[in-house]
Simulated assay, not measured.
Amino acid sequence: MHIPAAELTPADHELIAHARQIVDEHGDGAGRGVHTMGAAVRAADGRVYGGINLFHFTGGPCAELVALGHARASGARELTTIVAVGDGGRGPVGPCGRDRQILFDYHPGIRVLLPTPAGVRSVRVEDLLPLPTPWSSVD
């Protein structure tokens, strides 16, 4: 399957750097079996919001979901781009299936920065979920 991917813009590189700074400064410590992720999301007005996962043996909120919550709590409703970066120099990491579904449901036009065979690229969330199960909180 071919997924259309775009080259990164300077703003995309800044978003990656923001997520990397979050995980580097606030991570739980790579090498201890705790995998920390930092995330950054850009709103349509250019503001950037960050998040970090809360690692716990029962599961915990992913960094992307924390960043989405941070944006929402700050009043941002239209988000354009999101990225998650792993600790220990892992770089950008694609969102898990739950995150993809939530991104699709709440922000169907959002672009996701993730590794591809051609390097880190920008991909529409719709292309990550070609046959999604649409859901809405509004009946």
Rank of each mutant, 00 (worst) to 15 (best):
V41T: 03
A30T: 10
V23C: 07
H26K: 13
R111V: 00
A84E: 09
E78P: 04
L15D: 03
M37K: 11
P134H: 07
D105A: 06
L103I: 14
A11E: 11
I22Q: 08
H2D: 05
C96Q: 08
R90H: 10
M1P: 12
V85S: 01
R77N: 05
H2M: 07
D24S: 13
V41K: 03
I102H: 05
E14G: 14
L129F: 14
V138Q: 07
D12T: 00
C62I: 05
H35C: 11
A11H: 10
D45P: 07
C62R: 02
M1A: 14
N53S: 11
A11R: 09
P4G: 02
R72C: 06
A118M: 05
Q21L: 14
P61V: 12
L8A: 04
R20D: 04
H70F: 10
A5H: 02
H56L: 12
F104H: 04
V66F: 06
R42D: 10
R111P: 01
V85L: 04
Q101I: 13
Q21C: 11
V138R: 07
A40M: 11
A67Q: 05
V48F: 10
A17T: 05
T36K: 09
L65E: 02
E14N: 13
I110N: 01
A17E: 04
A5N: 04
L129K: 13
R124P: 05
A73D: 15
A17M: 06
G31W: 02
P92Q: 02
A17G: 06
A63E: 12
V125P: 00
W135C: 03
